[in-house]
Design a binder for these strands. Structure first.
Length: 305
DNA sequence: GGCCAGGGGATTA
DNA sequence: TAATCCCATGGC
């Protein structure tokens, strides 16, 4: 019998959290749950919403409560306390963040209403760095395929779960020893040389130098400078790494979709204006706002047709 | 600072 | 079938 952990959570919904483009290794199962691997641990996350009126309709604020039970299967109490609790960012009060952001304007208010179950996963730095190098100028379905191929070919088998094999994310050492051509099986295109280049830099400088950027006393600007020095990492990818793995929550990644949001919904014209507007409006919660808005614009595009 | 190639696949025309 | 687009970056 699989070991399970069940906890009561608020401001969480698996679809919002796993489909908002922050992570690429969570797969939706036929029962609506998600199976993923992080830190070499395979886990399944299911969610049973509370059936109270407030949760089904509107919360006390201008958003649903997204309250219910999060059930993690194939894990232990120790792993939950030592890893998943932090990974799922369960100690953060998202209600307070949403209330503050919702006061800013009607656009972000509606975005929070649509994707109020997003939690920013605290992902591993090395994996996040490489995942977002792969993400550049790319579609999410293909990003997922590239990463899966990378893990299957260069990672280690982490185990079999519900009839499927899972592989860990390849280490810097393994990829540093490769030539870009060796990664051809992953269909990374021109990004293969970026991965190998960055892997060699990380191997040289030490993984701990990268990990140290996640410390609270490391300023966002310092982390940004460090992360952008890697091969194939510019401002967009760096901001994603800062936001999704280093706890720099003022980061506001500006990609094609976010430029669309800022132009169509906020009337900002240049990227410079967009950055300044975001900083001015969302401040230290910029990263949370970015995720709500990113999810919102993509939902709208889908419903259009 | 602006322009364009980089791979490859998915989507659109 | 052809053109366009994609959670961009590096190099000129």
């Amino acid at each position: 019998m699989e070991q399970q952990i069940s906890i009561q959570v608020e401001d969480f919904h698996p679809v919002h959290t796993f489909e908002c483009g922050q992570a690429f290794r969570w797969e939706r199962q036929s029962d609506g749950s998600y199976t993923g691997i992080a830190g070499g641990k395979i886990v399944n996350a299911a969610f049973i919403p509370d059936e109270d009126l407030e949760n089904l309709q509107e919360g006390s604020g201008s958003y649903k409560a997204y309250r219910g039970r999060l059930i993690l299967s194939n894990t232990s109490k120790e792993d939950f306390e030592g890893f998943w609790k932090t990974y799922f960012d369960l100690d953060r009060d998202y209600g307070a963040i949403k209330r503050e952001l919702a006061q800013k304007d009607p656009v972000i208010r509606e975005a929070i209403r649509q994707g109020g179950g997003i939690r920013l996963l605290q992902q591993e730095k090395w994996e996040t760095l490489l995942s977002f190098i792969i993400s550049q100028n790319n579609h999410i379905p293909r990003i997922k395929k590239c990463i899966e191929a990378l893990c299957e070919n260069f990672g280690e088998k982490a185990g079999t779960y519900r009839g499927r094999d899972y592989y860990s994310f390849p280490s810097p050492q393994v990829l540093a020893a490769m030539e870009p051509e060796d990664l051809a099986v992953c269909r990374l295109g021109y990004r293969a040389k970026y991965l190998v280049g960055t892997a060699r830099q990380v191997e040289q400088e030490g993984l701990s130098a990268l990990e140290a950027m996640g410390d609270d006393n490391v300023a966002p600007q310092e982390a940004f400078s460090y992360v952008t020095h890697f091969c194939g990492v510019g401002p967009k990818v760096a901001n994603c790494v800062l936001l999704f793995s280093m706890g720099k929550y003022d980061s506001f990644p500006l990609d094609v979709w976010m430029k669309r949001v800022m132009e169509q919904l906020y009337g900002q014209k240049s990227p410079k204006e967009m950055k300044e507007f975001a900083e001015r409006t969302f401040g230290r919660f910029g990263g949370f706002a970015q995720q709500y808005l990113f999810y919102y614009i993509r939902e709208m595009e889908q419903k259009d047709c």
